[in-house]
Amino acid sequence: MNLLDTLLRCAAALVVFLTFPLIIGQTEHKVMAHMQGRLGPMYAGGFHGWAQLVADGVKFAQKEDIVPAGADRRVFQLAPAVSLLPYLIVLLAIPVGPDGFVGQAVDAGLFFVLAVMGVGVIGKLMAGWASANKFSLLGGLRTAAQLMSYELPMVLAAASVAMAAGTLSLPGILDAFEWYWIPWQAIGAFVFFTAGLAELQRPPFDMPVADSEIIFGAYTEYTGLRFAFFLLSEYAGILVVSALTAVLFLGGWHGPLPDDLGWLWTILKTFALAFVVIWLRVTYPRLREDQLMRFAWTVLIPLALVQLALTGVIKVAIS
């Protein structure tokens, strides 16, 4: 292994991890504002408030760090990092362009990505439990229940793509991609993206952080940089889920342009999906907790099973 090369790739992943979520966050500010007939941030940085999130970051870094007296101190302080880092590690395995344009190709990439993303839930449970606050605890449990319920349809939908491609390697899946996968895997795409949205606790699936009921769920007691890390993990999550949906279901780097520009397609598709995430937030009201759980188990999982059957039958028929 070339150590320098690998270090460079890791550094690139870190840079993407620290910039792209900010771009998505800024887009959310502006898109939401315009959809609601507002202007959004206009001052920070001069041009249409482009530096708003940078300014937010500077502010967060200077805020006092408060650990409640009753809290489980170490666990409380570690939780944001546990919630944040899985998304960084996932980014490394997502292919951007053809011919090895990927942070690091992992053999069982699909499996690896799903497994690592699942670690984030521990961070949220840690935060909810360690805060010594009723609302945090309730929020943490809701988060955990939601993440587990939606993990299953997500895994099943991802398995459908693995069946279609006959490999678990993410670049391998893209190498096997054909245009007709898009209609063929459409149900899976819907299930995967919706479940991803729920994993991020984005509206309309934001019951675990419902401000009208439980303040801010597991993050209620957090201040300053640790709070900022939880927010960053949400936006990094949007990036990861959008990128994964683009890679698994929308053909990643495949597009009408020559292969050299494949990376452009990946990024375009990712941001288009991130836009949809923001759009859904503005469009739909929050689901009630029981509706939210029922939706996962009685709608998404049966749909995912239908997709599995469909994939299996068609794959055997064409091979």
Partner: peptide, 30 residues
């Protein structure tokens, strides 16, 4: 990063060291 064959080699399970290389990179990123 483009066009470097390192990752492509690692993607092949038949290449023994590729497996550990891939996860070493993941460890390094961690």
């Amino acid at each position: 990063m483009k066009g470097q064959p390192v990752a492509a080699v690692a993607a092949d399970p038949a290449v023994g060291s590729g497996y550990f290389d891939a996860y070493a990179a993941v460890g390094l990123l961690a």
